[in-house]
């Protein structure tokens, strides 16, 4: 295998940084929320199908876990944005277009879900 070029090394860093930092932060939050719900004082159970924003606003262990889960789902979006920046810098248009399509659709999916499925009050 050839030695990675500076461009290749930068691309790998742009992709692995959100993967490492985002995943670690998400798992730590999920674990803290899980431990709080397990070891802490009993809390009223979150009703099934409670929208995410309501769960987060209610506070407590379920809110911490939900923020961790939200952060985890944002990791792939951060990776796609990292790929856009990496391929833009290296001038690889073909992959820049592919990455931009992925990043754009993930942002659209996130915004549509946030605007349509979050409670209006």
């Amino acid at each position: 295998m050839s030695r990675p070029t500076a461009d290749e090394d930068r691309l790998a860093t742009l992709l692995t940084l959100p993967l490492r930092v985002g995943t670690l932060a998400a798992v730590v939050l999920v674990a803290i929320g899980f431990l709080l719900s397990w070891l802490g004082p009993p809390e009223p159970a979150v009703k099934a199908h409670t929208p995410l924003v309501e769960t987060i606003m209610s506070g407590g262990a379920a809110a911490v876990t939900s923020i961790g889960l939200l952060l985890l789902t944002l990791v792939p979006l951060a990776v796609a944005v990292g790929a856009v920046i990496g391929f833009w810098r290296s001038g690889e248009r073909r992959y820049l277009v592919g990455s931009a399509v992925v990043a754009g659709l993930l942002v659209a999916s996130l915004l549509v879900s946030l605007l349509l499925l979050a409670p209006s009050t």
């Binding site: 979150v46 995410l52 924003v53 659709l105 996130l110 946030l114 499925l117």
Partner: peptide
């Protein structure tokens, strides 16, 4: 998976427990 997960997550279909 993220493309489909946002709708499930914001709708409250991902049980944190």
């Amino acid at each position: 998976a993220a493309a489909g997960a946002y709708a499930y997550l914001f709708r409250g279909d991902v049980d944190p427990t």
